[in-house]
């Protein structure tokens, strides 16, 4: 499903932040991405959700070489990828409900078709009472959950999450992780970037460990 071969990435004329990165994510797999700050986790995620093109190497997502794919074909791939950003990136002028419904709205799905599902999902992540609240008045944990709901609402084939449990209490972290596990059981490929060793130990999924721009796969 996802294949990286000798991928390198540099910003402008700077040094390579990712070097010879090679790995594969099989369909329906669950992986953690970890490494110290500045190791290149966010850069790797950016390559995965097509916010960057690699400087060198091959990236194949859903069987397509994204490095050479014309940009008009990128949206179709992005729609199959759900992303939870570390800084949430919710739109402040939209309500929680509108933020979560956004991926469906841009696909042209009619409100009647998704309204109940979105409300149900928001209730599941504990935001049933915050449907009409804008992100500005949500707490960090609530924003986190809204961002997760937005990432999963479109039933993505690949879910990328950057520190998705960083702003929530352990109990809610476990609950959110159960959501990811459930999605994984339904066939979604999951990659979670985290520093949380406890979370990784509890779940025991394979890890992609980044160190100074180089990647090692630890089973």
């Amino acid at each position: 499903m996802i294949q990286f071969e000798n991928v390198g990435l540099r910003y402008g004329m700077g040094p390579e932040v990712l070097r010879n990165v090679s790995f594969q994510l099989a369909p329906g797999s669950f992986h953690f991405l970890t490494g110290s700050s500045g190791a290149g986790k966010t850069s790797l995620l950016q390559l995965l959700f097509l916010a960057q093109r690699p400087t060198r190497g091959l990236i194949s997502i859903f069987g397509q070489d994204v490095a050479t794919l014309p940009r008009r074909e990128l949206p179709a791939i992005r729609r199959r990828i759900g992303v939870v950003f570390q800084e949430f990136r919710l739109l402040n002028h939209l309500t929680t409900y509108e933020n979560v419904a956004l991926p469906l709205r841009i696909r042209g799905v009619h409100t009647d078709e998704y309204e109940n599902n979105v409300i149900e999902l928001l209730r599941w992540v504990g935001l049933g009472e915050r449907l009409n609240a804008t992100p500005e008045i949500l707490s960090g944990g609530e924003k986190q959950r809204a961002a997760i709901a937005r990432a999963v609402v479109g039933r993505p084939a690949l879910l990328l999450a950057d520190e998705p449990t960083g702003n929530v209490d352990p109990e809610l972290a476990q609950r959110l992780l159960r959501l990811f596990v459930e999605l994984n059981r339904l066939g979604t490929t999951i990659l979670i970037a985290t520093h949380d060793r406890l979370l990784m130990n509890d779940f025991g999924a394979p890890r992609l460990v980044l160190d100074n721009g180089e990647l090692e796969v630890v089973s």
């Binding site: 008009r72 179709a76 992303v83 956004l102 991926p103 841009i106 696909r107």
Partner: peptide, 16 residues
């Protein structure tokens, strides 16, 4: 810019 970037990342086409 931020709104447009998010729209892109959730799969919005240029036409949208």
């Amino acid at each position: 810019e931020e709104v447009i970037s998010v729209l892109h990342l959730v799969g919005a086409q240029d036409n949208f």
